[in-house]
Nucleic acid binder design. Structure first.
Lengths: 133, 133
DNA sequence: TATTGTTATACTCTATAACTATA
DNA sequence: TATAGTTATAGAGTATAACAATA
């Protein structure tokens, strides 16, 4: 049931994200870029546990959307620092809002107390289960 | 969080299922075959919302493992009825046991009352969210 | 020789559509 | 002409490995 619900949540999120042209995986990257400004591509990839080719593709996507810029590093000409543009920051904000909407839609049938209980229980599971991967 | 937990559960389940040579999707099919004995392939596919080519591949997999037999229909030579073999029934039983093990592993940190509460809350979510798909 | 970023390649999963043999 | 099953093909998604430029 957890598995099916998780899929349903992911799919709803993905579907609504289409309106701003990105996928769930881009959200994590955008958030990482915001929290680690001007970091190199590979460093971002390491932080998110992504292989180099994957991060390049995603950075390509975000660059095509105008969400980020590749800034050439002056001291090391192999490197590009990734900069979040205003548009990218706006997209991240929209994505966050969409996530909130999906949360609300999913939790619609639960009252405030029930939501809190659920959140607490899930967090308890997550601390154990998400560690091993 | 639901999304990540769901993924973690699915992956753990998939990993343990490897020991008996099948994937999570085969479990649903095996269960359907048991509950609908001697049904045609396409009918099974419809019951599980699968396209014909997908069900054929999965039936191929299960046949190669000796879990099912294709029985030629005597009145309609296009049709094959799917029969669960003893080995297939055993596999389904093993899969069910594995699912139980994964459940226990995931729910390890929760007490009996907490598990019941979680189950109740998730079911409440599921009745709403899993309907739309 | 090692590292950053990129491209090429391959592999899985899955869906669409063409095809066969029956009806 | 429609249906059961099959095969071929194409599309995402993702990982591996080869590669160029630079350190």
């Amino acid at each position: 049931m957890l598995s099916k619900l998780g899929q349903a949540v992911t799919e709803q999120f993905a579907q609504r994200l289409r309106s701003i042209g990105i996928r769930p995986k881009h959200c994590g990257l955008l958030a990482a870029i915001r929290s680690m400004p001007m970091t190199s591509q590979l460093a971002l990839g390491q932080a998110l546990n992504l292989v180099p080719s994957a991060i390049v593709t995603m950075i390509d996507d975000l660059e095509a959307l105008g969400a980020i810029n590749r800034i050439a590093d002056e001291t090391d000409r192999r490197r590009y620092a990734i900069e979040l543009t205003e548009k990218g920051a706006a997209m991240l904000q929209q994505a966050t809002a969409i996530a909130q909407q999906v949360d609300d839609a999913i939790l619609d049938s639960l009252g405030k107390t029930e939501r809190d209980t659920l959140h607490q229980l899930l967090r308890k599971l997550a601390t154990r289960s998400l560690q091993q991967g």
